[in-house]
Design a protein around this nucleic acid. Structure first.
Length: 268
DNA sequence: AACCAGGACGTGA
DNA sequence: TCACGTCATGGT
């Protein structure tokens, strides 16, 4: 395995940052703007936090389970596992569809590692069907369930105890179906590790603002944020969620990115 | 009625 | 390394 000297993001793509901004990095300015504009987003949503007694089985897109300003989740291993499942299911899929899939699993009382493993493959596929790619995702959910079980075995008290053993990013990436974004989502939201999540929205925004090239690699964009933020998982969690919210509002239509209010914040 | 969603993987240049 | 096809449902 050869090691390449890789350019830091500041050498690479921060030419748009003027000297006048050095006291407060542009990355931090953007965060402050977004937080002020939208407020805490309450990620990662947990289906478990749905309070209406399950009387709503067919309605899609209810989109509950957010907990804005409360960073005490996940509180047990079951919630950790739900986040991990959601991270996989949401790949290239909108959250309301994932929510439906998770609620289906919950209705089957199978939203925990052993439950997923013991589910008949066809039943599992049917349950997660609304989230798309159900053939692939069913198999990959079982892989995650088995992996998480092995992680859980090493935890003394079991069950409701939160998992203490933090997996490495490489360990996560070695699981089939877990790529860079999913691995970082799991680290950040299921294990509260300061690993910044880069998604398609993040790419669009940084590219549009001239903070990163169109063809910037995942790890470059990740480093751009991590090098300019406090090493705080809460900030990482909030920032990623805010970028998603912002993109949903201003980066929906291609070519209309010029109206993004962040352009004034960045000052380009 | 195309196009996109909180991507990842396998393949062949 | 990198571009491209594949996987699939549901909302706009």
């Amino acid at each position: 395995m050869k090691m390449k000297i890789q350019k830091t993001s500041s050498q690479e793509s921060n030419s748009s940052i003027r000297e006048g901004n050095f006291r407060k990095p542009i990355i931090k300015k953007i965060y402050d703007y977004l937080l002020d504009a939208y407020g805490p987003q309450g990620w990662w949503p947990l289906a478990e936090l749905h309070t209406n007694g399950g009387s709503n089985p067919t309605k899609t897109g209810s989109v509950q389970g957010y907990h804005p300003g409360d960073y005490t989740y996940p509180r047990n291993s079951t919630q950790q596992f739900e986040i991990i499942c959601g991270a996989l299911l949401t790949q290239n899929t909108s959250w309301p569809q994932v929510e439906t899939a998770l609620l289906n699993l919950k209705r089957l009382k199978a939203l925990y590692p052993e439950g997923i493993l013991e589910l008949d493959p066809e039943i599992l596929k049917e349950a997660i069907k609304p989230a798309g790619y159900y053939n692939q995702k069913a198999g990959r959910l079982k892989i995650l369930a088995e992996w998480f079980s092995s992680l859980q075995e090493k935890t003394p008290e079991r069950s409701t105890e939160i998992i203490q053993r933090i997996p490495s990013r490489e360990e996560l990436l070695s699981l089939k179906g877990v790529g860079p974004e999913t691995a970082d989502s799991i680290l950040l939201y299921a294990f509260k590790q300061p690993s910044f999540v880069v998604d398609a929205y993040t790419r669009r925004i940084t590219a549009n603002l001239g903070l990163a090239g169109e063809k910037a690699k995942y790890d470059e964009i990740k480093a751009l944020f991590e090098e300019n933020l406090p090493d705080d998982p809460v900030v990482y969690q909030e920032y990623h969620a805010l970028l998603v919210e912002h993109a949903k509002r201003h980066y929906k239509k291609k070519g209309a990115y010029g109206e993004c209010p962040l352009i004034k914040v960045v000052g380009i």
